[in-house]
Design a protein around this nucleic acid. Structure first.
Lengths: 154, 154
DNA sequence: CTAAAATACTCAGTGCCCTGATGAATTGAC
DNA sequence: GTCAATTCATCAGGGCACTGAGTATTTTAG
């Protein structure tokens, strides 16, 4: 009888929250384009011509996952990959016209979906909700990247 | 220039939170047993002899995923699957002694990990954190299960 | 009792997510 | 200029998550 209450485990709650979001996304936003795919497109709308690694860093996808996501977006003709003439290791990513149109179309729907998802919270609670999650996620990511030794000045 | 701020998208934040949790789990709890696997074991500690579907329902795993997770736990000798003599469709699940020991051992570590993950929040904030996430997740799950028509009495 | 509906589980297919190992190009030390 | 370390990307492998289709068993309708 040493069972634990998973309702006090943030990891468990995060997983359930993400599942809930996944379902709502599928019904209210798109069955073709996923949330991570939208995030990648969004990063390229904000700044075109980024390389894979940088896009992954900005949207929180590791090197393997970002490669898969980009491959799918490329197959659908939503973005193009061209070798960087100044650095042969990099591929520069750019949305196609179709990609831009798709991003614009989905942007409206994501806003509506977020409203539905956050409907149970008051506006003030929504603000707190964002802040708390972001603080926890940021701090945990900080544990991962050992906070560059602050250039021990001498 | 119609890029969106993903910091205001709960789905994006949920994904980042879960990733952060995943990494911390791997370093502080176990590299063998995952968080969903622990959740399944925990459900069986609370009540032994449940069938797959029920376990999945309690921990938030769909029919396909719960089957895979149980298969892995079975392969590691942490639980057993026996056909229900009273209903040939069901498999009854029970933790082995090894499974019980493993659950007990990991329970301590999950508690420590949760402390680290939640360290950036004050105790009051942690309470709010749990409540807000749970309310959003519960409400979204409610959208999925159309709330059984309340037995329109007549 | 029998045919149809419901239920538990499995399987195939797609996509996200991570690690460790590998290959190609660039940068830095000498 | 050369060799080593770094960096960008790929590939193989394991695990989570969903859907749609299919199998076996039980329940229900008639």
């Amino acid at each position: 009888m040493a069972a634990v209450d998973l309702g006090t485990h943030p990891g468990h709650l995060a997983r359930r929250l993400q599942q809930a979001h996944y379902l709502l996304w599928n019904t209210m936003v798109s069955e073709e384009i996923t949330s991570p795919q939208f995030a990648v497109m969004n990063a390229l709308v904000a700044e075109s011509g980024l390389d894979q690694r940088t896009v992954g860093e900005r949207v929180g996808l590791d090197r393997s996952t970002i490669a898969e996501v980009i491959s799918r977006l490329g197959r659908r003709g939503l973005l193009t990959k061209t070798r960087d003439p100044e650095d042969g290791r990099r591929f520069l990513l750019r949305l196609t016209d179709d990609g831009l149109r798709t991003h614009r179309r989905l942007t409206l729907r994501t806003a509506r979906m977020n409203q539905v998802l956050l409907a149970p919270l008051s506006p003030e609670e929504q603000t707190v909700f964002f802040q708390l999650i972001r603080r926890v996620a940021d701090a945990a990511e900080g544990l991962r990247n050992p906070a560059e030794p602050v250039a021990a000045q001498g």
